[in-house]
């Protein structure tokens, strides 16, 4: 029997959040954490609330804090996160909780939108694709794969303190994804918008983001690249 402690909060009935314990029979299988939540919802308490969609780690719905570490419930096996017999599941830290494990991600999305996460190139497009060498394309590897699960940003203390002003690791990774794209021509404008004391420079290289990213991406490195670009721009 696996002991699961779940963060519960329903704004309609609860004054404050509390932890609720469930004993879940995993029948010895090394389930994913999402499977455990599905079991609880189906067999114990239908009111347990969380987001999920693809269940294979590409949609980014089920970012949660499991035994103290952010990750995707659908690709986190119990063997990886449970030491001993206890699994503690909380919502992603630092964002307002809507209900149970569901957080309000508006601040996170707002930071994403702030970096203008779309290709900008006003020159008339050719009749076919814009050409790009495999080397130029390779610069986007490790950047475009982000699934916006928010595991990184919600593990970042700088984002906890300034979610409205610090873009956060996820947003900055996207910012660099377009700065690094040989087809994008808005580099100057993008950099100018990032050169304030908060957007980029609140990153203190703590690297929690790198530690938790379920896709193995490295936002800190991308932020370093942005800093270098800002430096080159100024000199």
């Amino acid at each position: 029997m696996l002991q699961v402690s779940l963060y519960r909060y329903n704004p309609e009935t609860d004054d404050s959040p509390f932890m609720q314990d469930f004993s879940v029979d995993t029948r010895g299988r090394d389930l994913m954490v999402l499977d455990v939540l599905e079991l609880i919802k189906a067999e114990h308490d239908g009111s347990v609330t969380y987001r999920r969609s693809c269940r294979e780690g590409v949609c980014g719905s089920d970012g949660l804090n499991m035994n103290g570490k952010n990750g995707l419930a659908c690709i986190t096996p119990l063997s990886e996160t449970v030491k001993g017999e206890k699994l503690v599941i909380r919502p992603l830290p630092g964002l307002p909780v809507i209900r149970d494990l569901v957080v309000d991600m508006s601040l996170f999305y707002a930071q994403y939108e702030k970096v203008q996460p779309y290709l900008q190139n006003p020159t008339p497009a050719p009749a076919i694709e814009r050409l790009q060498t495999p080397e130029e394309r390779a610069r986007l590897d490790g950047l475009y794969e982000c699934i916006l699960c928010a595991c990184c940003s919600t593990s970042c203390p700088s984002f906890w303190w300034n979610p409205d002003r610090f873009v956060g690791p996820a947003g900055l990774l996207q910012a660099y994804r377009f700065l690094a794209d040989s087809r994008d021509t808005a580099t100057e404008d993008r950099l100018a918008k990032l050169d304030d004391p908060f957007s980029v420079f609140r990153c203190h290289g703590i690297q929690n983001c790198v530690n938790v990213c379920p896709k193995g991406l490295n936002p800190t490195k991308a932020i370093g690249h942005i800093r270098t670009m800002l430096l080159n721009r100024a000199t």
């Binding site: 290709l119 694709e129 050409l131 130029e136």
Partner: peptide, 18 residues
């Protein structure tokens, strides 16, 4: 497809850049 590419879709590339 070309519209998608112009929108920024990061397709993998051939040596010719296509």
């Amino acid at each position: 497809i070309f519209e998608l590419e112009h929108m920024g879709l990061p397709f993998s590339r051939t040596e010719e850049g296509r």
